[in-house]
Design a protein around this nucleic acid. Sequence first.
DNA 1: TTTTATGCATAAGAAATTTATGTATGTTTG
DNA 2: CAAACATACATAAATTTCTTATGCATAAAA
Lengths: 112, 112
Amino acid sequence: MSNSKLYKGSLSTIILKLLSKEDKMYGYEITQRVKELTKGELKITEGALYPALHKLEADGLLEVEMQKVDNRLRKYYKLTQKGTTETVSKLEELERFMETMNGLMNPKPSLG
Amino acid sequence: MSNSKLYKGSLSTIILKLLSKEDKMYGYEITQRVKELTKGELKITEGALYPALHKLEADGLLEVEMQKVDNRLRKYYKLTQKGTTETVSKLEELERFMETMNGLMNPKPSLG
DNA sequence: TTTTATGCATAAGAAATTTATGTATGTTTG
DNA sequence: CAAACATACATAAATTTCTTATGCATAAAA
């Protein structure tokens, strides 16, 4: 993650969200997908991505499946049951954060 | 900051935004204002707030004015010129972040 | 008189990054 | 054909930003 400043804490939500619609993805693929979906606004660095994936796996949210393609090793990640549940809650959390920030940035003048 | 998980990096933006409409505020006042504006969703802890204020001051974005009220000392902060400029850019950054996250969470299916 | 509110501050530790490397294979390009 | 770029993973050191835990001080409320 670099360039357009990301708020720390959002990376795992991004990963989980992508995996919730793709069934399985590998690390490099995730960096490319994010780059294309955000038109280059967001660039996930490997230094952030791989530790994040390892942590999600260690927490039991992702499971791994190795695969050799074109003589190159790929590590495919997919959501576990627990991961699917956690994804929902992370997305709700993001939603709340966005609404809260909106309320702070554009406060409704109190009536009366 | 505790409770409703905040994305790290947003605190200084919140502080700057509040000061951009209030002329001057002191630390404790900021914690209370945030609590009331977010209906308790966001609670800024002193451990996060004071170091953040000190950093903004050190960076030349805020200036300080001490004042004694009811035998209690208050440290009022206000935006400097540089702080006003930086506020605009921080708000744009937040706006871009929100749009980017929205694009990731609700991607438009590519036409064709 | 103990808790709660007001008001500031710092220090230790944790979490999530950035930046800098390292390894390896395959393709493109000058 | 050598150098650069793309693909693919990984880790380590340093930095940023926060949480948690204290500490000090005044004043009001219970």
